[in-house]
Amino acid sequence: MNRTTRIMQMHLRDKWSWFLIPSMIVGISFSINLLISLFMTEPLYTGGIASVFVYIFVIGILVVPQTFPLAIGLGTTRGDYYRGTALTGLAFGAMTAIVLLALGWLERLTDAWGTDFHFFALPYVAEGNALAVVAQYFLIYMFLFFWGMFIASTFRRFGVKSLLYSLLIAIVVGTVAGFLALRFAWWEAIFEWFATHSLLVVSLWTLPLTLVLAIAAYGMLRKSVV
């Protein structure tokens, strides 16, 4: 058996983490909002779909501590583990993107579920052609997945202190940047940039970041011990 695909099969054994929990999160969020929309006269727009993306960030963080020790313990190379895990992320990213697109179509087809409830086909998010929608979902998914994996790999490689330091740096940088943005009135420009660019363009800008995070995660995992 191929060494990378067996890592993927190892991940797929955990159906809860990869499949059932995210489906449930979206399902519950959708159902509750649908129920609410039944009692509302005006249209309901919710961002419940974002939970999928928050969840994949969490999966990216959890997958390494959950499975790296077992894979290495069973004699896998770190490289094979990384490739198998990244491919699992890619596969689920593509699948999620396609499912979300399909549900968006269904939403349009059913005239917003008949109750003027907008969950999957949101303005700005689900505009543009099918390929663009799938690409943007996929790119955001991968960005969050590798961001999570990057954090977990940092922890694996350098321990808990490194995480605290990174967090501290992130807070300091964020605060300073926020202050500067306020001081020099960059916010307006930032908002305008988002407003004038489609989500596809915005998500394309995550691609270089995703690549950096993915490569850094690989570099750290290669030197990690169990």
């Binding site: 054994r13 020790p69 077992l70």
Partner: peptide, 15 residues
């Protein structure tokens, strides 16, 4: 040796 939280005995042996 650590195993994933959701793993059952059968999962560990299958892997």
């Amino acid at each position: 040796q650590k195993y994933p939280d959701n793993f059952k005995v059968a999962d560990a042996l299958a892997v």
